[in-house]
């Protein structure tokens, strides 16, 4: 039984079908990547899994439990943390307040929250330096670190990452991905949505490829790296 099982997921925005009968899985401890062009439905997939968007059809199961129509806060309580596209840190709150909010579901256990914070500061020392700064004053890379750290505060079993490389300098992107691997090594499963297919396939074990709301390809990361269609569309053609 996989940690996350998505079956025949369909999502509609008004009259438009954003996702059509998508099925995917994430096993505990895996890094799985979801690739596709802009508008393919990758973010929608994450938003349906984290409970922000109600599916029109299909099922989502977490460790066997059906969670399809649960509200977002219930998913966080069950160990699913979603780091949204564009970071979405709370700009008028401090770094520390943002992190504390990440630990909201554990707010009655002050110790656990403080420990979680320390672990995030260890992972991202730059955040510790800026702990009392307003999050809106941080650079793009720092905000990304904060968003990921905030997600970790919920002590998740599954981390949903939406385009962590977006808008970041290449050096920072490498750093972020190294951190994602480190987080995964600590036992957190990751579902990674990325436009940077090269890096994503480098760090993931398996991948799925979406095109206009439908699953068109799936396989082991190295298989996808070698696949001519994937290379053409997402990896910049022949090497």
């Amino acid at each position: 039984m996989a940690l996350l099982e998505v079956k025949d997921l369909t999502v509609r925005y008004g009259g438009v079908v954003a996702l059509h009968r998508l099925s995917l899985q994430v096993e505990a401890g895996e890094i799985v990547t979801l690739l596709g062009a802009n508008g393919a439905g990758k973010s929608t997939t994450l938003r349906a899994i984290s409970g922000l968007v109600p599916p029109a059809g299909g099922q989502i199961r977490l460790d066997g439990e059906e969670v399809t129509r649960l509200p977002a806060h219930a998913l966080v309580e069950r160990g699913v943390a979603h780091v949204p596209e564009g970071r979405k840190v709370f700009p008028t709150l401090t770094v520390e307040e943002n992190l504390n909010l990440g630990g909201y579901t554990r707010r009655r256990h002050r110790h656990a929250v403080a420990e979680g914070r320390d672990r995030v500061y260890q992972l991202f020392p730059r955040l510790k330096e800026r702990r009392h700064q307003l999050a809106g004053t941080l650079s793009g890379g720092e905000q990304q670190m904060l968003a990921i750290g905030r997600g970790l505060m919920a002590s998740p079993r599954l981390l949903l990452l939406d385009e962590p490389s977006l808008g970041l300098a290449p050096k920072l992107v490498v750093e972020i991905f190294r951190t994602i691997k480190a987080i995964n090594r600590q036992g957190v499963a990751v579902l990674l949505v990325e436009q940077n297919a090269r890096l994503a396939l480098h760090v993931a074990q398996r991948g799925y490829v979406l095109e206009t709301g439908r699953l068109v390809l799936e396989g082991m990361a190295h298989e996808l790296q070698g696949d001519p269609q994937v290379r053409e569309a997402y990896l910049g053609g022949r090497v």
Binding site: S50, G51, L52, P71, A72, H73, V76, E77, A81, H82, P84, K88, F90, P91, T92, L93, E97, N100, L101, G102, Y104, T105, R150, A154
Partner: peptide, 20 residues
């Protein structure tokens, strides 16, 4: 803090586990 977060962005507040 949760109230302030909700005032900024409902969806992201929900992702924190806040019952908006």
């Amino acid at each position: 803090t949760a109230i302030r977060a909700t005032a900024i962005d409902h969806d992201t507040a929900r992702l924190m586990g806040i019952n908006v």
